[in-house]
Design a binder for these strands. Sequence first.
DNA 1: TAAACATTGTTAAAAATATAACAGTGTTGT
DNA 2: ACAACACTGTTATATTTTTAACAATGTTTA
Lengths: 206, 206
Amino acid sequence: MILPQKSIERLSRYRRILLNNLEKGKEHIYSHELASQLHFTPVQVRRDIMLIGYTGTQRKGYVIKELIDRIGEILDGESHTNAIIIGMGNLGKAITSYFNGKRTNIEIAAAFDTDEQKINRVISNVRCYHISKIKEKMDELDISVAIMTLAPEAAQEVADQLVLNGIKGILNFTSIPLNIPEHIYVEDYDMVTSMEKVAYFVNHNE
Amino acid sequence: MILPQKSIERLSRYRRILLNNLEKGKEHIYSHELASQLHFTPVQVRRDIMLIGYTGTQRKGYVIKELIDRIGEILDGESHTNAIIIGMGNLGKAITSYFNGKRTNIEIAAAFDTDEQKINRVISNVRCYHISKIKEKMDELDISVAIMTLAPEAAQEVADQLVLNGIKGILNFTSIPLNIPEHIYVEDYDMVTSMEKVAYFVNHNE
DNA sequence: TAAACATTGTTAAAAATATAACAGTGTTGT
DNA sequence: ACAACACTGTTATATTTTTAACAATGTTTA
C-alpha cells in the first residue's frame, strides 16, 4: 500500500493520542476529538483512517484499541527496527530517554561516542561504545537506522562509514546536510529552522 | 509579502549553507550547488530565490553575501526575537547550546526549570530561573516565543501561563499536543514521529 | 565577432495534499 | 415505526507545492 508521506506522519501522531486516551480508560473516539487534540481537521482524520482501511462504528466513532492495532500494522509492519544513536551528548541522551517507555517497535540498541568517559557506560538504558566499534555492532545487532546527534565536523565521516556498513535510513539532527547515496532514506531535522519559522510567523501575523 | 510555509523553511536552510560556504571563502554559488548540498532541486532553489526578489548574476550564480542579506530581510525583518526555554533537561540544554554561536537574530534569553539544582545557574550561557518567575521574566525581557522541553505532565499548565502572559509563538517538543488559542502560532515537533517515519520508509522501499 | 554554452528567471503543467460536499447508515427519541 | 440526528466513508473540488519547460542573457571560445 502506498500512503502519502503526510498521512504516515499523522498516523504516528494519531497512535500517540490514541494510546493516551486508552490509558485514560476511553474506548471510543470521534474523528473530531482526534482532530482537535492534534489541531488537524476531522475530515483529514477520517480520510487518513479510510486510507488504511479501518472503519469505525457509526455514531460511536472509532474503537481506540482496534485503530491502534491497525495503525501498527501499517506503520510497523512485521518488522522490528533496530537503531543506533551516534553522539551521546545532551541531544543523544534526550532522544534515548525519550524513546524509553514509549511503546514503539523501534529500539535504540546501542550508542556511540568518542568521549572515554562515556564508553561502556549505560546511559538511559543504552550502552555506549567507542565510535570505532560501529561496524562490529551494526552487524551484531542488525541495525537499519542511525540517529546522528554528533558534532557536525565529524558527521560526514561517520555517515560514510554507516553507508559502507549498509545503513538503510538516517535521522540527521546535525546542522549540516549529509552527502548520502540516493537509495538511503534521510530525514533531516534542524532546530534552528523550526525556530526561525516560528519567529517568522510570529512577526508576520497581526 | 506572502511566502509559502515551505519556502520559509527552505530559506532558513539556504542561509545556513550560505554562511557555511562564505566561511570557506566562497563568494558565488550556483543554484545547483545549493540544491545538491540540501537535497533540493535547482529549480526549487531558483524559484524560492525569485520569490524573495533577489536576482543572481548570469553564469556566476548568486553572490553569497548579498543573498544572505536578502534572506535576512525576509526571515528576520526588523525584529529581534527573544525566546525562553522551559525545561532545562537534556533536550533543553541541547537546544540552548545549539543556538549559541549560530548567527541568528533569535536569542534564548532565559531558561526555566523546577529543579532547585539548576535555579540561578548559568547553563550554556543562559540563566535558569524557577518556573514561578515566568511572568516576571517574560515582561522584563520582552519574550515572544517559548520552547517547551519539559515533561508532558506539566506542559499544559505552563502553556496556559504563557498564554496568559501574552506569548506569541510556541515551539513544542513535548510529546503531547497543547491546547492553545488559535491566534498563537504553535509548531509541534515529535521525535518519535520522525523516527517512525524513517522506519516506515526504510521497511517499505525496495 | 559570432556561435555555442551555461546559467538564471518565469510561466505553465503536474503532482501532492487538503478541503468540501454529501451520501450512507446505525441510533435515538417520540 | 418512523423521523430526526449525528456520525462515518467517499467522491469531487480547491489549494498548495513541486516539477518541467523554455525564454532571456551574459560569457566564453573559436
